[in-house]
């Protein structure tokens, strides 16, 4: 009987492994803005923009224009076709065929686009955070309308859609955190007024848990859905924070990417931070991503040194691709 149980157990275990083996690999998408070696007018500049890898950097695929200044991307699948929105210096580019062809959806008046976010409940609604404020489309990019009412600063590097209420948005500005409860129709400043905010994240499973990174003041965490915020900088020696990532498995584990300080990790909800930079060559980190399927695997996007990966929760890092690139954004889909 015991042997039968053991046989069943190992069979199950092997079946699970086989299942994982044949499961579709998540794709890592990386957006690069420029490269360290870029020279204006040169015939030999490297390709930049949107890249992807399905094999942890062994090979990379590029999408779209080769030399456009890009800041971030977002994607969704509709009717089996993958749709991308790419935030670029020259507007929002959209692909409706998995990245094969691209259209500039914006006009002369929208420029320096820094972030796009697709409403998961209505993919025709997309928000763009730009150097000139927030723009919104409700027709899949055919038209874009400025939505800046109530913003104290129109320099908006990023925004997120609240997972618990898709009509609610949080927006980072140069003058603090703003919230809209009506899809961007109006904004209210809600916290950290006067601070330049660089990134905002929300925990994938606990929508009350939010974190943001600032230009000069480190990390702030809210456990009550943005009502109150606490600065968490003990051990965070470098307080310009461009990137944050929650571990899906543990709310108290957060990774922070900084300027000139590399990557920091807290395992106690921000009470203390430790630098985890083993092997990293460059300590300017602009993007961080924890693989949801394997939370020990963490990706780091650097400024001028491409993409790095840790397979041991940040214990050490190895270079995996896009050498000399300035990685501005990453996501897994």
């Amino acid at each position: 009987m015991r042997i039968k149980v053991l046989i069943l157990f190992f069979t199950f275990f092997e079946l699970s492994s086989l299942n994982n083996l044949f499961a579709k690999s998540p794709t890592l998408y990386v957006v690069t803005r420029s490269t360290k070696t870029f020279k204006i007018g040169s015939q030999e500049n490297s390709t930049v923009g949107l890249f992807s890898t399905k094999n942890k950097g062994k090979s990379w695929r590029h999408y779209g224009w080769q030399y456009t200044k890009c800041f971030s991307a977002s994607t969704i699948k509709i009717d089996g076709e993958q749709i991308f929105y790419l935030a670029c210096g020259n507007g929002i580019q959209k692909s409706e065929d998995g990245g094969r062809t691209w259209k500039i959806t914006t006009g002369w008046n929208i420029t320096e686009c820094l972030k796009t976010v697709i409403d998961p409940e209505n993919p025709k609604i997309v928000y763009a955070a730009t150097a000139y404020g927030i723009f919104r489309t409700t027709d899949g990019g055919k038209t874009w309308v400025e939505k800046n009412t109530g913003l104290m600063s129109t320099f908006t590097p990023t925004l997120i859609i609240d997972r618990s209420d898709h009509n609610q948005l949080f927006c980072a500005t140069e003058k603090g955190l703003h919230r809209s409860k009506n899809n961007g129709e109006s904004w209210q400043p809600i916290a950290l007024l006067g601070l330049g905010i660089r990134t905002i994240i929300q925990h994938p499973d606990n929508s009350d848990l939010l974190a943001l990174g600032t230009e000069d003041d480190g990390v702030f965490i809210s456990k009550d859905h943005g009502k109150t915020w606490q600065q968490k900088v003990n051990g965070l020696t470098h307080k310009t924070v461009y990137a944050l990532s929650f571990s899906p498995e543990n709310e108290n584990t957060i990774y922070a990417g900084t300027f000139q300080g590399g990557i920091f990790k807290t395992q106690n909800g921000g009470k203390s931070w430790q630098a985890i930079n083993k092997n990293l060559r460059i300590l300017d980190i602009h993007a961080l991503l924890i693989d949801p399927k394997n939370t020990k695997r963490v990706y780091a996007g650097t400024l001028n040194d491409g993409v790095w990966m840790s397979g041991n929760s940040g214990g050490s890092w190895k270079f995996i691709g896009l050498e000399t690139s300035q990685v501005w954004d990453m996501f897994i889909y």
Partner: peptide, 14 residues
């Protein structure tokens, strides 16, 4: 719009 602290080195390269 690029990160301000990073900009100086980048501008200086061109």
């Amino acid at each position: 719009p690029e990160e301000m602290k990073f900009s100086i080195d980048e501008v200086a390269s061109n």
